[in-house]
Design a binder for these strands. Structure first.
Lengths: 191, 191
DNA sequence: GTGATTACTTAACCAAAGTCAATGCAATTG
DNA sequence: CAATTGCATTGACTTTGGTTAAGTAATCAC
């Protein structure tokens, strides 16, 4: 289990014995059934997650529809926007499948960073990398049509099509379910 | 000049005497004329910036058009995606006005973090905050129409209309210049 | 298993953005 | 000062997504 976390971290740094210990000391697991809500809109969050198995979706309600913000799958961190603050959440966090996560909290984080400062450096590095990746996604989204976005998902995260229903995908692509249906049809016909 | 940086940091932490010293030790200024290119597509970057005065735009070329990724104004950090790596940049960084920046580089950063570890904690905190803000912008973009996006800019960053020509704004909003022109007309007519 | 709910598709119609081309306007340049 | 260039606007036309509504398929609950 822990090995998933180390595998993830190894993309950013060399895994030392000390790091292994640090991780094993600060790791707590939880598992959730498909459909579990980890955080509700308006709720307060004291936890962040790292997905070991399963999938998570964040969404909120607008104009009576669910708007899917992001899908998270194995080896991805999920940190609520209000994590560590006392502000109510703007969105829901939900398990799309039976899911096992490693759980963090601000206390534990603080202690761990104090004990293993390299872990904080690593966190900074990861955060900066995430910023860059987000920028790329945003730019990609802005400069492409819904059809291109759908094709992009097909190519880069085909598993999403298995785990998420189309109307969730649609809102993730910034369109209505009917439009996604049409786009799929257009693509079929064109073949 | 340095006070702008401290003002920015004070949003995230308490400014101690030590922090002030750390900043003054690690601060180098540069100024650029309007239109200066700080980084070209394909170029390597060893610098990151903090804008003290002026404005910066990042963009790249696609389908023969400039696609504006972001506008940065006073008190904002600008970090090229390839900063500190040897990968060529995917985009241009350009000054929209005469601009004065504080400049950082990986060496300096490393030394400073070593000497003042609290600065690295602060960087992590800031990076995490930026991630959250980016997520919010992305979500806002996805769930709104071009017209709503334009109105949002009008409300949240009205100064952009002064410093950037409309075709740059249009690509920033993910639409064609003609469409932005029509949106503006529609809004005028409606009043 | 059956009925009810939810998800997906299809169609007709509308509104808005894309495309292409032309025009006007202002700033810049030779 | 005339010519050029770049930008914004406008118009005609096309394409595509949103909206509404209906029908079909799939899933869930009892």
């Amino acid at each position: 289990m822990k090995s998933e976390i180390l595998k993830y971290l190894s993309k950013y740094t060399v895994i030392t014995k000390e790091l292994e210990i640090a991780i094993s000391e600060s790791t707590l697991f939880k598992s959730f059934k498909k459909g579990s809500i980890l955080l509700k809109e308006g709720g307060i969050s004291n936890e962040c997650y790292f997905i070991l198995k399963g999938a998570i979706r964040t969404y909120f309600l607008k104009d009576g529809d669910e708007k899917t913000m992001e899908f998270y799958t194995e080896e991805q961190p999920v940190v609520p926007a209000n994590y560590g603050t006392s502000k109510p959440s703007e969105y829901y966090i939900e398990c799309l499948e039976d899911t096992i996560v490693s759980v963090g909290n601000p206390q534990l984080e603080k202690e761990t960073f104090q004990k293993y400062p390299q872990l904080e450096s690593l966190s900074r590095l990861i955060a900066e990398t995430i910023i860059i990746k987000q920028q790329e996604s945003f730019t990609q989204f802005k400069t492409s049509t819904p059809e291109e976005r759908y094709l992009n998902i097909l190519k880069t995260r085909p598993n999403l099509l298995q785990i998420a229903p189309q109307h969730q995908l649609a809102s993730y692509l910034g369109i209505k379910p009917e439009s996604l249906s049409r786009i799929r049809k257009r693509l079929m016909d064109r073949k």
